[in-house]
Nucleic acid binder design. Structure first.
Length: 746
DNA sequence: ATAGGGTTAG
């Protein structure tokens, strides 16, 4: 594999040596310059008027050609002082001199000063300079609008643009792109529309810079049809026009159309540059088309752009999203000082592919290098934390957030609610929820999903009513949360009712909602109702819907309907092990051993193997993984003694294991020995011998708990007086005093 | 005399 990717080797330090080779921006003078004749009066004037801190002498001798043979022109002199190497102190000094010497040469010098201040990021300094000038002309107005929109102060940019019109200064072809950029960044569609009208009235209908700004504006505001209309009227399209419309389609969830326009562009003689390739790569990343993405990668190399930082980020996202996280990491490692966006791309790439530990590791590395994360970094790291399911890790992250600038960030706190819920503490999730002052629909929905995971359906519905009282409208995710909560709690009629009220809020049910309803009905044993529901769906039932039906058939041993669902699943999703396992389990529960064997043969033919089961328990901040019959732990002997002791106490308490169907159940962990060797039992035993009495044990499983273990753990919780929290593949079980929070409804 | 547009993480 490494051989097929020769582009990953990088000559040492090439990225940086290229910068060193970049020529300094000096002016080339004609050979044989005339002799230097600077009038004595000028030198005297300069000496009396300038402080040494400006180091003017050096400046003169460096630029003396500018003054040769001509009388000293102060305005030209000032203009030449304001070059790119200017510092903030110099800006103020020059401005002071302008006032003191009474040299008012019109707005252009101030405009130049403001632009230079903007270039070096001195936004407030630029504004101060602007404010001192009483009667700004269009150059000066443009300078301040541009300064604000370049540095992310979009509201200020729009405000200054509006004030310019109050001052009766007509905008020109340079004003529009700046204010349009501000409008698209916010986004402020209404303001953008007004600007569009002004552009029309001022006759900039064929200015390509202005029109590109409009394309970007409508694309960013989701008005892709309008963006395309403006693009369609453009006669001389530049690479920027094409990039704007391509990225517009890519950002509005139409990557295929974006790619079609790119291929259209390739028929013209406009050559893509690196920004265009970034947009195209994003589209291929969205559709997870690695093959075409690789061909763009080839383009990148051919054009000699393989060391462009931003293209490396795009390539990293592409390979990571397509599952090649190792390749992505090689790109990441090539760069000595990755930007924040680069770190975020790598972390989220890991999270998307289930490499949660690597993601957390990278987050820690970032912290150790004192790189400041942003809310995206933190949100992705929380997602990793939720995947692992470690409550300790969630607490650590929470503590970190509470001391950071993200303490009051709504998006981060929403991620924290989700993380706490997925790490087993619905109470901590609620605590975070309660302290958020202005809850938006995502915050409410996250909490409802959290209750759903823990089977607290009533709480979820109460929250829904509270949300409506607070005047917040639900969205489609809200209903996913509610329906999940209902199906996990057996609230059939409540869920059914909520599903039918989605239309009242103008929300069209998606696959997930239909799947929830099928699950809701099916699990409660209303299999015929569920089947009728599927048959009358307005959209084609997909994998999730048939999967829910099959799983309901397994619980209620409805073989014929289950076979029907399985048949659909095998044609829709032929290489997913889970469906075969479910069907096999259905046969096993009905004691159809021949059929079980047939499914196993079918799986073998397709080269499918069942997933290995494992359980994870966290002791003193360390995650310990167990598989069935696992003897690898250093304290293995003690663990097995504890397992046997538990088994003995279970029998004494009258527990009767139901072995037969479970032993043939492919979903669960096969072992030649006894059922009590299942991984969660080992994890529980290890937890019991490693923690003080009364400590809650928290276990995460990759599969669903088997019937036998579920029954056993209920009793164990009573025998050892411990609360045991188990996260299985789809939900939480809280075992306490011989009962489980799921009410055996799972 | 002065200056402008497009991109990547979630």
């Amino acid at each position: 594999m490494a051989k097929s990717l020769p582009f990953l080797t990088r000559p040492p330090n090439k990225v940086f040596s290229f910068i060193a080779l970049c020529p300094q921006p000096f002016k080339i003078r004609p050979l044989d310059p005339p002799p230097f004749r600077f009038p004595a009066s000028t030198l005297k004037f300069l000496e009396t008027h300038y402080s040494s801190s400006l180091n003017l002498t050096t400046h003169f001798y460096k630029n003396k050609d500018d003054y040769i043979g001509s009388t000293f022109k102060p305005d030209k002199f000032y203009a030449s002082l304001i070059d790119d190497s200017i510092h903030k102190t110099h800006l103020n000094q020059i401005y002071a001199k302008l006032l003191v010497t009474g040299l008012q040469y019109g707005g252009f010098l101030i405009a130049k000063l403001v632009n230079k201040a903007s270039n070096i990021g001195e936004v407030s300094c630029a504004r101060k300079l602007f404010d001192k000038f009483p009667d700004p002309d269009v150059f000066l107005w443009n300078a301040i609008v541009r300064c604000y929109s370049r540095h992310g102060f979009f509201g200020h940019a729009i405000e200054m643009y509006a004030r310019m019109q109050v001052a009766c200064v007509s905008p020109d072809g340079f004003s529009f792109p700046c204010v349009l950029k501000a409008c698209s960044a916010l986004p402020a569609l209404e303001m953008g529309r007004r600007v569009h009208g002004q552009i029309f009235r001022h006759g900039f209908e064929s200015d390509v810079f202005v029109q590109n700004g409009l394309v970007a504006l409508y694309a960013k505001c989701g008005e892709i049809v309008r963006a395309n209309a403006v693009f369609g009227r453009l006669v001389d399209r530049t690479i920027v026009s094409w990039t704007s419309i391509i990225s517009g389609y890519a950002q509005n969830g139409q990557p295929i159309e974006a790619l079609r326009i790119f291929s259209e562009m390739r028929k013209t003689n406009v050559r893509p540059d690196w920004i265009a390739l970034v947009s195209v790569l994003r589209a291929y990343t969205d559709v997870e088309d690695l093959e075409h993405g690789k061909s763009i990668h080839g383009c990148v190399i051919k054009m000699g752009l393989e060391y462009e930082f931003d293209l490396l980020i795009s390539l990293t996202s592409l390979y990571a999203k397509c599952g090649h996280v190792m390749v992505a990491r090689l790109f990441f490692n090539q760069v000595e000082n990755p930007s924040l966006i680069f770190w975020n791309a790598m972390i989220s790439g890991y999270v998307k592919n289930g490499y949660a530990e690597e993601a957390i590791e990278l987050f820690r590395l970032m912290k150790s290098k004192n790189i400041r994360p942003d809310s995206i970094t933190v949100t992705s790291s929380f997602a990793a934390c939720a995947q692992i399911g470690s409550l300790e890790l969630a607490r650590w992250m929470d503590e970190y957030i509470s001391m950071s600038e993200f303490r009051n960030d709504v998006i981060v706190n929403t991620a924290l609610i989700d993380t706490y819920a997925k790490c087993g503490s619905v109470d901590m999730a609620r605590f975070v929820f309660d302290r958020i002052p202005d809850k938006d629909v995502v915050v409410w929905s996250a909490m409802m999903v959290g209750y759903g995971l823990h089977g607290q359906g009533r709480e979820s519905i109460i929250l829904f009513h509270a949300m409506r009282q607070a005047g917040v409208s639900p969205n489609d995710v809200t209903f996913v949360g509610l329906l999940t909560a209902c199906k996990n709690s057996g609230l059939v009629e409540e869920g059914w009712d909520l599903f039918h009220r989605m239309g009242d809020y103008g929300i069209e049910p998606r696959h997930q909602h239909y799947a929830c309803v099928v699950d809701l009905l099916g699990r409660a044993g209303h299999l015929d109702r569920a089947y009728n529901f599927v048959m009358n769906m307005p959209i084609e039932p997909g994998v999730s819907v048939w999967g829910a039906l099959l799983s309901a058939c397994k619980i209620h041993r409805h073989v014929t309907l289950g076979e029907c669902a399985a048949e659909r699943l095998f044609s829709l999703d032929p290489y997913n092990t889970g469906h075969y396992v479910q069907l096999s389990n259905l046969y096993a529960s009905s004691r159809l051993w021949d059929c079980v064997a047939k499914v196993r043969v079918l799986m073998k033919e397709k080269g499918l193997t069942k997933h290995l089961g494992y359980s994870v328990i966290e002791i003193n901040g360390k995650l310990q993984v167990f598989q069935a019959g696992d003897k690898t732990h250093p304290r293995s002997k003690e663990i097995f003694e504890e397992v046997e002791d538990l088994e003995r106490r279970l029998k004494e308490a009258g527990f009767v294991p139901h072995t037969e169907s479970v032993l043939h159940d492919l979903n669960y962990e096969e072992t030649e020995e006894t059922l009590c060797n299942h991984s969660e039992r080992l994890a529980i035993a290890y937890g019991l011998i490693s923690t003080p009495p009364g400590t809650t044990l928290r276990i995460t499983k990759n599969l669903r708990a088997c019937n036998n273990c579920h029954a056993a753990i209920k009793l164990i919780s009573k025998l050892v007086s411990r609360e045991i929290v188990v996260r299985d593949a789809s939900r939480f079980h809280h075992f306490k005093d011989g009962a489980c929070s799921c009410g055996d409804y799972w």
